[in-house]
Structures are given as structure tokens and as C-alpha cells.
Amino acid sequence: MAGIDGSAAHLSDTVFTTAIAVYALAMVSYVAEYAFGRRGRVAATAAVRELVTVGSPRTDATTASPPARGGAERLGRFAVALTVLGVALHALSIAIRGIAVDAVPWSNMYEFASVAGLVGVLAFLGVLWKAPTIRHLGGFVLLPVILMMFLAGTVLYSKAQPLVPALQSYWLGIHVTLVSIAEGALMTSAVLTVLFLVKHRADKHPGSTGAFSNLATRLPAAETLDKVAYRIVAFAFPLYTVAIICGAIWAEAAWGRYWGWDPKETWAFVVWVIYACYLHARATAGWKGRAAAWVNLAGFFAITFNFLIVNIVVSGLHSYAGLS
């Protein structure tokens, strides 16, 4: 294994910081669009969709977005452009880090958080592609990503290092890649679920005012949020399953057993079972909607716990955190 290319590692850090700044700018633009956008936008878009369905069902919903509305619309487009730029920089920083350590660059908490954040933003862009109406919600996705990247770049940061022997396995690449993709996607699902709960509540108490109901009027229909959140889990759950299997294959090769109830493994299991609960809840009478949404959030809580608390506080074999 070659040593570490210090200047490349340094460049990677710089690009990483720039990506955070670009995301922050994008977030401000989303929030501005959100604040200045007109109230009726969701209703208007929904109406347009009906129209389109009648006329020519093939038409992509993009063309259905309401005619440009000056400032807010331009802000929104600007925000998306910035997000794309941020993603490009973010991906670049990870790629350079990979070159610097001459291995897949997600073997410690800093690198992992960075990759998961990237996947979260990509998942948002993917959803945006299919459902442009949620654009003004970009701030809600970028906020946790920025926080996580900030945390990654400060508290969780570790210098670029070559891998210790136990981590020198291609299963590591596959395992951690899949986990970070799945968890990044599940983060987006959790954000949409929170928004679903807000909208759901507002639908129940139509008369109320305040920040929440103000927010709710601009959200897509509760049912849409719920559905998109579900589709994301339906995508991420099999990935997470494969990720756990790859982890088990790797553990078998490295530690002599495929499963040992190490704290990290235990929490991966807990997360997996909670999302299985979520999928069941959505198919169980009386659990659809709000209850299922809370299960989804419990799943994301478990992911966060596994990532932060188990890595930092609970010790185990998976001491890859790189913190000391």
C-alpha cells in the first residue's frame, strides 16, 4: 500500500469546504424562494397536473410547472444550479481523497459522513427530477446535510490515512458504499416524513395559524409526501439488506464469524428491523399514515444513533471511526 499523498489530501479538504459553502448558498436560495414564493403554488401545480393528464399524459411534469413567476422562480432555479455545483464539488472532494489514500475514501467517520451527505443530496435531486414541485423544499434537505458535513469536517475529521489490514478488503468498498447510499436515501425519506407529519397535522386542524401551518400550506399534498418517502425506503431497504450481507461476508473473512452481535452489527440489525416494521406498518390497517411515519423516523433515529453514539461512545470491533 502506497503512502499518503499529502497535497492531494489537502486539496480534497479545500474542495470539501467549498462544497459546504456552495450548499449553504443554495440553501439560502431555497429558503428565499420558499419565503417569497406565492402561496397558491402547490394548488396551482396540482391543477396543472390534472390538465396535463387529460391532454397528453406523456408530457413530463416539468413542462407543467406554472409559468415563470419572476424573482422566486429565478431564485429556485439558481438554488438548483448551486446544488448541482455543490454536488460536483462534493463528489470531486471525495474522489481526490480516494486518490490521496489510494483506497475507497469512506473508511472513517469523516469520509463516511461525507459520502452519505452526497447521497442525500443526490437522492433529493433524483426526487426533484421526478417531482419538480418539491423544489422549494430543498432547504430542508440541505440543512441536515450541511450540519452533518460541518460536523464531519470539524469534530469527526481525521487525516487521510491508509487502511489498517482488517479494512483492506474489497468487501469494505461494497459494504460501506451500499450503507452510505442506503442511509443517505433514508435521510431524505426521513426529511419528507417530517414534512408529511407537519402537513398531516395542518390538514387535521385547518383553521390554525402559526409557523407550522404556514409551512404546511406550501407543502405538497400529505399523500404525495408519504408516497415519495415510501418509494425511497422501498429503494433503500433492499440496498441496506445487501449492505448488511456484504458486511457479514467481510466479517466472516476478517474476524472468523459472519455475525457476532458487536454493537455496530446489533444496531445495523435494529435499523433493518425498524424499517421492516415501517414496511409492515404501511400495509397494516390502523398503522398507515401517521403511525408508520413515526416508525420511519424511529428508523432514522436508530441510524443516527448507530453512526454517532455507537462510533464514539460504545466501543466494539468496528473501531473505524478514526477518532482517538
Binding site: W261, T266, V270, C277, A302
Partner: peptide
Amino acid sequence: LILLFLLAVGAVPGSL
């Protein structure tokens, strides 16, 4: 659903 939930909760002390 209930059993899955118990399974998840039951595993937690094993890690803490």
C-alpha cells in the same frame, strides 16, 4: 408488526 418491534427493542440492550 408487534413482534418485529419487540425484536428491535430487545436487541438494544445487547449493544448498550
